[in-house]
Nucleic acid binder design. Structure first.
Lengths: 344, 344
DNA sequence: CTGAAAGCGCTTACAG
DNA sequence: CTGAAAGCGCTTACAG
């Protein structure tokens, strides 16, 4: 209530500080940034006013001058997916201390949602974009990559115009590895549950698995490969369909972690014993795999490593936007479980 | 290369549009916002220029005028935790279409990290803050709440100065329920693994459990209650300590989901049979509980519901910042598993 | 209906 | 060393 206590609701700006310190806003700015010499006395007065008023520079306004928002957009299909979540935390841990903030968007792999999210981020003038794309906005993303740092996460886009970076797992080799494992364990009646083949990861995984089996002399029957949405529901439905139409299968390979979870749900509910009556192989993070009722055998993607690489590459490109496009492929890791029966 | 194709690297601004349309920037702004009458002809010319140049208004610059950033800060202990992840997705789904973006920060429940994150968000002039606080910046958060919409998520702060909203689960009742369950099943030798009692949730949960047992005539021995960091490692270590010093325990109640996971890890590794030789009860989301090697009995927090409420309350307060503080308590849900042996 | 001008909160070349 | 001024990209009251 005192006349002194000018603690009104309005945000305190550089003008307020200048006024109570009895200096110009230029001087306030200079002591805040410490990039110009300012006489000790004025410096003291400014600091005192800053403390008194609780002044905090508006980094948005700063950004206007610098044309830098110090913000990165993180666009993924599902921010609920543990893989992406670990990556975002890693990025935040690295970029946060450097002053960047992360704006996250979930697209559900939906074209419009993705386009809307990207537009929102662009109009927010983020400094860079990290995208796990739906694969349905390729041209748009390619065009953006010409003027803004873009790092593709896992999924490539089909456009020669793209001029950003890519980081992902070695899907082909990972699934080739699993195919060899299945073969060596004696499996020949093999089914695959995969997803949208317009998405590069699924394409690479499926091809890696199928080609390897063919090379080993055990070509897959096309009818045993089915595609389903990469969700738990998708997996639940798909495995039912697959097993009904192909009761002869001894092993099923599933190309996505959420899909696998759904499939296991089905398997448990239907009392199908793993690996006794059915063997299972899958790709992707399995949360708390060691607490499951059977230990799955799968390839995992090392999200921590991916996150670190993404942050490093983004930082690199932020510093030099003209940098040539890079491809970083991270080897996946084989997790030996007990979900594959030895038939050999 | 054509003189026409002015597709340079610079961002296209309202000035560029005005120039190529041959109108003033005021007119461009008016047709972009559609909030003032503009003659059809000019309107057409502007739209044409916009399309041609691929113009997209800078919402940061707009925000400067409106003093609105259309951004919400989401500060949680761990953005990797599925509970918070589902909440963030729900919020994003609701607030996103309304034009808001979500800036997420992970604090690891560390005081400095939390303070730094909040400062960053403030200087980014977010329109509101959703905080799952570490409980170590109470005064600071309380002071912020006076000038900015703040919604506390789960954890309260100990300051009468706080003037935002709170939303959380009914921790006391939830744990009272579990205590009754333990009692009815005949358990009397009960241990508790809890965490930092300066955090409101842990306090409420522990008290709810302990008081209820006392009311039932089975007061807990203080030595059987131990506190540990709410992480998997914390749970792993704690249960080892607890069981070694108290081999007589028939049931252990764990107050946090990550802690529980760690504890189960230990239990499985040490070949302790659940519920045959030890019964388990816990609080919080259990991801894929139905795929675990035993079905845990626990209380879950309905993150979807929490997320919706948080978004609604935030929206409310955004519209009316002077709104009186609210408390929304969401009932937790009992998930009956098979981790408690019937001794009765 | 339309444009020139002020202003949102900053920074920094420019001129002392 | 310091201040007045221009400018970052917008919006909107003001004056036609």
């Amino acid at each position: 209530m005192d006349g002194d206590m000018v603690q009104n609701n309005e945000r305190v700006t550089i003008f307020d500080v200048a006024e109570t310190a009895g200096v110009s806003i230029s001087t306030v700015s200079r002591v805040m940034n410490g990039n110009y010499p300012v006489k000790q006395e004025l410096r003291d007065r400014v600091n005192k006013a800053v403390a008194e008023l609780g002044y905090m520079p508006d980094s948005v306004a700063r950004g206007m001058k610098f044309k830098r928002r110090y913000a990165i957009g993180y666009v993924v299909s599902d921010i609920t997916n543990r893989h992406f979540t670990i990556i975002s935390k890693t990025i935040d841990d690295i970029l946060g201390p450097l002053g960047y903030s992360l704006i996250v968007c979930s697209t559900d792999s939906n074209q419009e949602k993705e386009a809307r999210a990207i537009k929102m981020l662009l109009s927010n003038r983020v400094d860079g974009l990290i995208i796990n794309t739906s694969g349905k906005n390729d041209e748009y993303i390619a065009s953006i990559s010409k003027t803004l740092p873009v790092v593709l996460l896992h999924r490539r886009i089909a456009s020669s115009e793209f001029s950003g970076d890519y980081i992902g797992s070695d899907n082909y080799q990972a699934c080739a590895h699993l195919a060899r494992h299945a073969f060596i364990m004696g499996h020949r009646e093999i089914g695959i549950i995969t997803s949208d083949q317009s998405i590069s990861t699924f394409r690479e995984r499926t091809i890696g698995f199928v080609e390897t089996l063919a090379e080993l002399g055990a070509p897959m029957l096309p009818s045993r490969i089915i595609a389903t949405p990469y969700t738990e529901e998708g997996g639940y439905t798909a495995i039912g369909t697959l097993l009904e139409s192909h009761p002869e299968l001894s092993l099923v390979m599933i190309m996505n972690n959420a899909t696998t979870i759904g499939a296991i749900q089905y398997i448990r509910e239907h009392g199908i014993a793993v690996p006794e009556s059915l063997s299972l192989l899958s790709f992707g993070e399995m949360l708390n795999a060691n607490l499951m009722y059977f230990k799955p055998t799968y390839m995992t993607q090392k999200p921590l490593l991916v996150g670190k690489e993404v942050a490093a590459i983004m930082l690199d490109r932020l510093e030099d936007p003209t940098h040539a496009g890079r491809e970083v492929v991270i080897e996946a890791q084989f997790e030996q479980g007990e979900s594959v029966k030895d038939l050999s």
